[in-house]
Design a protein around this nucleic acid. Structure first.
Lengths: 208, 208, 208, 208
DNA sequence: CATGAATGAGCTTTCATTCAT
DNA sequence: TATGAATGAAAGCTCATTCAT
């Protein structure tokens, strides 16, 4: 990518390894081979250092996601919603960013406790939730989810997102990302479909 | 449950919200409406306070899990291993404990970084992994997993366990636990089965 | 002696063993078998507890010593002063008090750091010093001690007093007190005399 | 001596005045005119600060003492042991170190309660005791000291060592050290000799 | 009178942050 | 610009002291 000073790289590594809270400015300075004071010439404080590392990547991600959300909310009023279609979009976006900014994305989604980016994962889960929600609604043709369906959708979206994050966190090389994520999505969609079919079946049963 | 002094409850809440590391004894004392020094009448130090909260629950959990591990390793030498069967056992154990000790179990699995219980979730993931691994091996009839299969199994076990933990973390009422977890397991097993069938199919293709 | 409540005895033991600073009110209450709060019904605080224990004994001691100081200062203007005579008086006083109030006296002289009785030993050393000083002056017939003589007298008085205190601290039974103290005084006086004779001799040499 | 930073000097003074236990890092920082945190740049903790001050000096002292102990235990099997000879050796060692490291040595011997150096004075007293013991035994020709003789030797060795420590503690200039210590040793040996002669005499009397 | 739970000042130690050089 | 010594708020913990029961 663009030129990265030593302290940028060291900070990335430290945040990645320890998370924001346990990361120490001294450690970062130390492994960057610069004086602690010097970091503060370029970054106002620990928060801003983190922000500087993560913001550019997060903004790209957010832009893509905003677009996605619009499409999804638009398609709510349309024909058969295709969960997989949206997930594939999300997948493509995420994989792309993760391949290019592995460390930064990992940090945003897994190591940002204590920062203003801590909402990134919950946000993604909410998005995922709304996809699943809309799908169920269309299939079932109701106004809103039952309490149980809500819990189910929440759980599934969380689990799915966690799955994505884990793949991204652990598989450093990048080339298997897509295969793994595809697999995960396939498992979920297969399983989800059969669950929904059961719902429909039992829904019909109850109606009769 | 049984009677709990204010500081026990406050500590539970603080650990649950902040995790062990960020939790502060002063905060706990504060929200318990108690002077900082008084906590030390009942708990030798922060570590012991955490331990006191978590140990009884964790020990029960561990006892059940140890039993489980034995059964699983025993059945490796036997006929068709049944992933669902084992997961149901784990499920039953977890659900039971989570229903009774929601906060404590959540803390063990999601907020124990910095304590000696931090291994709990990784351990559960390992167990989950070995179940999936043994299943794939039996179906495929090989000695060991390929690198990709390993990544897949790791991802799935992590994702599954995270899913379980999330259900447990977010659904405070407890009564839907079982249904949700069942659903999650069902989705996973349905999806997993179709994945494995594809594996077998593609394996046969490649052989021909 | 007179009736002593449990906490008095326990405090005595604790102060004796740990010294004032390291002594803990909790320990004292604990080994007295009373509640910590109860001690504060009888003694305003740690300082006063210590004071209550030690004052009666110290006051007797001080009364004797005051008398002694007067006699000594009176005899300065008189004929051959007799170091041993004064020391015997001091000895008698100390031994008597130590036999009766072993623990209290030990505490005053060896365990009172951090209290207003910490001056007791230095005071005794000063008294001892003034005895030795007056003796040297009489023998030498000068107005004041040389710097070296001052240092010598200070050292001897310190050493002697420390010797006394040590005997008192370590010999719990009491019956050998007198013998040991006599021996110590005898050693000192024998040694001191020969030193003074040398002084006189060398003084004469220098004069000639 | 060599260059000493302010906090070194302040720590030396605080430990010297208050002893290890009562010394407070805040006080040391305060009188060094330094923020509390800064001391921890140079010394890992209170223990290490003390250790850093005292170790170099103590190690020299210990090396000399070890040598001494060997010589003494060797000469036990030989002809008339010469108390003065050994004390002179100890004296020389101590004086030398005290002249160069007055504060440090004073701290080791008088202010080290609560640290791993607290044994220094008791150790020196033990050495002193063994010298006196061996002397009495040679003169008296017995196997072991009577209870009373033990008490006497203990008292004398303690008193002597305390005397040494006091000289060292109070005479800051150093130039009179040797003269004073010589004088103390001379007084002790003169006195001790006459005591032993009395012992022999009374021993003979009792035998007849 | 007796109890012991509760209090809070003060200790050692850590670490993000500042600033004279 | 770069340095790293210096800063001080805040954490965990102790213990003399108080007070409701």
């Amino acid at each position: 990518m663009s030129y990265r000073p030593m302290d940028y790289i060291a900070a990335l590594a430290e945040f990645n390894k320890e998370g924001y809270l346990k990361s120490s400015m001294r450690n970062i300075a130390g492994s960057a081979g610069v004086a602690i004071g010097n970091i503060y010439r370029y970054y106002k404080n620990k928060d801003e250092l983190f922000d500087e590392l993560v913001r550019p990547v997060y903004e790209r991600y957010e832009a893509n996601m905003a677009e996605m959300r619009q499409k999804i909310s638009f398609s709510y009023s349309n024909d058969p919603p295709d969960v997989l279609k949206y997930y594939s979009k999300i997948e493509a976006t995420l994989i792309d960013l993760f391949k290019t900014f592995t460390a930064e994305m990992t940090i945003v989604f897994n190591r940002s406790e204590g920062t203003k980016y801590a909402h990134a994962k919950p946000d993604l889960i909410k998005l995922s939730f709304s996809v699943i929600e809309s799908m169920i609604l269309k299939v079932r043709g109701n106004e809103s989810l039952s309490e149980y369906e809500t819990a189910l959708a929440r759980m599934l979206s969380s689990s799915l997102v966690e799955g994505l994050c884990l793949i991204l966190r652990d598989n450093k090389e990048g080339y298997t990302y897509k295969k793994l994520v595809d697999q995960l999505l396939s498992i979920y969609s297969t399983g989800l479909n059969s669950v929904i079919q059961q719902m429909q079946a039992s829904g019909r049963d109850q109606t009769q």
